[in-house]
Design a protein around this nucleic acid. Structure first.
Length: 487
DNA sequence: ATGTAC
């Protein structure tokens, strides 16, 4: 639990990669590998994240290495920013801590036909309208209500469930990772309590680092990829970051309790109780996989409904339909999820369970699982930064398949704890500081804004630079915020 | 992240 620094071995492999050799601790089955440059590694050494990378290497069935992205920081059991793949045929396990409490937390990006000069005179009203129409904050209910029976159908079908209500289009589904649907979902494995928590929260933002931002394309780094995504300099976009709300939290909480005895039962030795896990091929493992997948499907519906409310807000302010405003979904990525994928492991094609906890899938061009529109450029990788500086759009690169099971980073990563950030904000008005930079912020709580202030995060440009140089993903466009809605 | 705890 201690958050003091990491003093174990870290061998620099190249300018963007560091190794914790498996000889570090008896029980490590593979090396730990962390993608970072020297500057970010200094920050990473300050907490126990690297120790957690080593601990994950103990998991049965782990393939190649226990991996971490440059935005890693300490988390429950697994660090946030961690990646691990397990082979069910080698006793591979599934672990709730490797997915995180917010199952299928993720990000989506919506483009528009509007440019900064079109929006600037209406920005205040746009942000007021978004703030009114997009529910945000801890425990907040939304306008969409689902009975338990409807929720089970929703979780069984994913985002396409919303089709019959006219709240999703075929194009939206096409531009959502996995089509917004995991076929491993078992809605009956989700507890009544989780259903109760989720029944009025689908289509709500939540709190913490979740947000809706109005952003402007600040700079383009890859003209071909940007054009394919329909992005141009100064274009106004909407970025949405949210997950599975109270429902996903409850699924994770239930699973941690249900799996408590599983490691002992299956003879799994763990260096940290928080790595609680079960073989994929066990009753306990299957139960969690079914519930986790169902919660993931709920999260895709949540982000879809959030986007829909954003489209409606733009319609009100600009007096045009969202289709006329060309508010199409560029892409939606999950960054807290475990998925069965095919990967090359030492020359053999294997189906492995890839855990991504605070890490984004980044499949390169030509991969069969990305939409045909992006076949020639690679999968869009959406990276939120902080509300005062930047966010990024990248595309998956070939090196991700060779090095990280098709994965890149997921954000900037904190440099300040929430408590430290609040102390640092004492006597300040973060909303006015943002306004001075041309950013209209709307937040439910002063404290929430204080916790999320730009200074509380690493510089996302530096994090993105590492995944670009490591050839995990390639820079396409830098986005700057002009409006923020927070819980 | 989360009705910061049943």
């Amino acid at each position: 639990m201690a958050k003091s620094g990491f003093y174990g071995p870290l061998e620099q492999v190249n300018e963007c990669l560091w190794r914790i050799p498996k000889s570090y601790k008896e029980g490590m089955r593979v090396d730990g590998l962390i993608f970072a440059d020297e500057k970010l590694m200094e920050l990473i050494r300050k907490d126990q994240a690297a120790e957690q990378v080593a601990n994950v290497a103990f998991l049965p069935g782990i393939q190649r290495a226990s991996l971490a992205m440059p935005d890693i920081h300490w988390g429950y059991g697994f660090c946030i920013g961690g990646v691990c793949a397990t082979d069910p045929n080698e006793g591979g396990v599934i672990s709730p801590g490797g997915v995180g409490y917010d199952i299928n937390c993720g990000v989506r990006l919506v483009r528009s036909s509007l440019f900064y000069q079109d929006v600037k005179p209406h920005l205040k009203r746009l942000m007021d309208t978004l703030y009114t129409h997009v529910p945000a904050g801890l425990g907040q209910d939304g306008k969409y209500h689902f009975s338990h029976k409807e929720l089970r159908q929703l979780m069984g079908q994913g985002a396409s469930y919303l089709k019959k209500r006219g709240l999703v289009t075929a194009n939206d589904l096409e531009h959502t990772e996995a089509g917004g649907y995991l076929n491993t979902a078992e809605p009956d494995s989700v507890s009544e309590r989780a259903l109760t928590r989720g029944s009025q929260q689908c289509g709500t933002l939540g709190s913490g680092n979740h947000f809706l931002e109005v952003q402007v394309v600040d700079a383009i780094f890859d003209a071909e990829a940007a054009e394919t995504m329909g992005l141009e300099k100064d274009m106004v976009c909407v970025m949405i970051h949210s997950g599975s709300r109270g429902l996903g939290y409850q699924v994770c909480d239930d699973a941690l309790r249900e799996l408590r005895q599983a490691p002992a039962k299956y003879g799994i030795h763990l260096p940290d109780k928080q790595l609680v896990c079960a073989p994929v091929n066990s009753d306990e493992g299957r139960q969690y996989l079914g519930a986790m997948s169902a919660a993931a499907n709920y999260a895709w519906c949540n982000r879809q409904l959030l986007m829909w409310q954003a489209r409606e807000s733009f319609e009100l302010v600009f007096a045009k339909g969202w289709e006329a405003l060309q508010m199409s979904l560029v892409y939606d990525v999950a960054h807290n999820i475990a998925k069965l994928e095919e990967h090359d492991v030492n020359g053999t094609q294997k189906k492995v369970w890839v855990h991504r906890k605070g890490a984004t899938r980044a499949f390169p061009k030509g991969h069969p699982e990305i939409p045909s529109q992006y076949a020639a450029i690679g999968q869009p990788v959406i990276i939120p930064g902080d509300m005062g500086r930047a966010s990024w759009v990248l595309v998956g690169a070939q090196g991700s398949m060779e090095q990280s099971f098709g994965t890149a980073c997921h954000g900037a990563g904190r440099v300040m704890s929430r408590t430290a950030a609040v102390a640092h904000a004492a006597g300040r008005r973060i909303d006015q500081e943002l306004l001075a930079k041309g950013i209209e912020a709307r937040a439910r709580s002063w404290r929430g804004l204080a916790e999320e202030q730009p200074d509380a995060y690493k510089d996302v440009d530096l994090v993105v630079d590492v995944v670009h140089r490591a050839n995990l993903a390639r820079k396409v466009a830098r986005m700057r915020p002009i409006g923020v809605v927070k819980g």
